[in-house]
Design a protein around this nucleic acid. Sequence first.
DNA 1: CGCCGCGTTGAAGAAAATCAAAGCACGTGG
DNA 2: CCACGTGCTTTGATTTTCTTCAACGCGGCG
Lengths: 269, 269
Amino acid sequence: MEPSCIIRHFEHYSPLGESDKALLDSLEKTPKTYRKNTAVWHQGSPCEDFYTVKQGWAYSFRNMEDGSRQVLDIYVPGDIVGLRELAFEKRITGLMALSDATLCPFPKARLMEVFSESLLLCSIFFMVSSADQALLLARLVNFGRRSARQKLAHLLLEVSKRLEKTNYDSRNPLRLPLTQALLADALGLSVVHVNRVFRELRDEGLISSAAGEVELLDIKGLSKVACFEADYLEENDVLMIQHARDVQSRVGHPLDAAQTDQELTHSTK
Amino acid sequence: MEPSCIIRHFEHYSPLGESDKALLDSLEKTPKTYRKNTAVWHQGSPCEDFYTVKQGWAYSFRNMEDGSRQVLDIYVPGDIVGLRELAFEKRITGLMALSDATLCPFPKARLMEVFSESLLLCSIFFMVSSADQALLLARLVNFGRRSARQKLAHLLLEVSKRLEKTNYDSRNPLRLPLTQALLADALGLSVVHVNRVFRELRDEGLISSAAGEVELLDIKGLSKVACFEADYLEENDVLMIQHARDVQSRVGHPLDAAQTDQELTHSTK
DNA sequence: CGCCGCGTTGAAGAAAATCAAAGCACGTGG
DNA sequence: CCACGTGCTTTGATTTTCTTCAACGCGGCG
C-alpha cells in the first residue's frame, strides 16, 4: 500500500521503522468525510481530538465580535490539525472543510500513548509543532511589515510550498482551491482590496484566477514580489532527530519490561 | 529554596514530583547574565540551545530586507525560549535582552533526555508549546482584524497577563519596561502612530508612560478597548495531564515509578 | 558642550476600508 | 425554458487609517 500522507510528512524528518509506521497508521484508523463548507468542529466545543488530513483541504478560523472572521491556517493533506489546542479544554478556533475532505480524528489521550511508545515519534511531533510555530511567526512578519500585494503573494507561496512537501503529485501550474473572500479573511484585508491586488498580479502574469481557484503561473516572480524566504520552511534538524534515536536506543523501548533502573542511571550521565 | 520560575510555570499545569522538579532544576544549572540591549543569539547563528528566562526581560525579532524589524515575542521570567526553533539548524530569529537579564541555556539534546525520563514533563512541554501557538494565533487575530488602538491595548494586556502567571509579585499598577519604538516594532506600526495612540489612551486615563516604561492604570478599560478575551491564555487541560500521568504510571516510569503512584492520589484532588 | 535615545507634534500623502452597484456562472423550482 | 437566488468576482467613488517626512523637546552622559 502506498504510504499515507502523514507518514510521508513524518518521513520528511526521519526514516521510520515498521513499528513507528504502524503507530502512525493506527492514528488514521477512523476516517471521516466532510462536505465542502461544513464544520469539522466549532469554536467553543469541547476539544478532545486531533485530526490528520487524509484528503482534501480545510481551514481554521476564529470568529470576531464584529461578525468578521480571521482565517488562521489552511491545511493540506498530510497536515496534523489541532496540536495548537492541545492545552485547551475548549476549541479556541473553528475548523471547516474547504473542499470535500477526509479527516481522521484520534483522541488527545492517544498522543500520550504514542509518546510513551516511541521517543522518535515524540520528537517528530515536537518538531512538527515547532515548525508550525515557525510558520506562524513568518505569517506574523507577513502581517506586520508588508503591503497587501506582498502579503497575498506570500500566502500563496507558503501554501504551495507546504503542498509540495507532502503531495508529490502537484503539477505545474499549481492550482489552489482558494476564493478571494477566504484569502481576504486570511490576510486581514477587505475582499475588495484583495480583488484589486489580484488583478494587478494577474495583469503581470504571475497568477491567473477562475471561480474559486488560483493558479500560480510564475513562482519566481511571486517570490520576488513577496520577498519570500523559504528558510522557515526548511526545517530539518538532523542532529535533533539523531539524538532522539540515540536516547531511544540507549534507554530502550519504554514498553520493554526488561527496562531497569540501573540502565537509566547511566543514560543520565 | 524558593521554586524557580520555570517550576512555577510548569506547576501551573500540574503538581510536580520531586524527581521532576529536580529534572527541571537541572535545566537551570548554568545561568548567564546579559546586559540590556545585548544579543543572546543572532538570526542565522547555529541553533543548539534552549533558554529559560530566570530574571529580566527579553524579546525575539526578525530583521527585514528593508532594514526594519518585526518583534515577534516578548519574554518574561519563567518563559522558555527557543522551542520554536527546535526543528531548525539555524536561528530564524534573533533574541535580545530587553533589560538586564539572566537566562539559562540548555542543549536541545537535553530535551530528549528529559522526555525519555518523564512523560509528564514531556506532556507539559508539549502543552507549553501548544499554548505558545495559541498565543501566536491570538496575535494573528490582533494583527488581522483590529485597529492600532486595539492592537496596542491588546498587546499590553497579553504581556501583563503572562507576567502575572509566573510572577506573583506583580503589583498594581503594573509597569512594563517597554519603549514605544519596541511596541511599534512588535505591532507593525510606525513609531509616530504608536505615539499618537499612546496619547489617546493616556488622555483616557488607561495608561501612563514615562521614559522607557508603560504603566497599566485601568486593566478593565483596556480590556474593553481591546476586546480582550482571556480564554486563549487560560489553557489548562486537566484531562490531558491526567492521561499523561495514567500512561506514565501504567508504563512504569523508569526513574520514579514508585513515586508517581503515590503522587497521583494526592494531586488529583 | 554636543550627541544620542526617546518621546512629541504637525502636515502631506499613501494604502486600504467602506459604500454602492453590477456582472457572471450555476443550480433550482416554477 | 425561463425566472430567480446565490456565491463569487469586478469596478468606481469616497473616506478612514496609518505612514512618511520634518522638526523639536528633553534628559543623560562622555
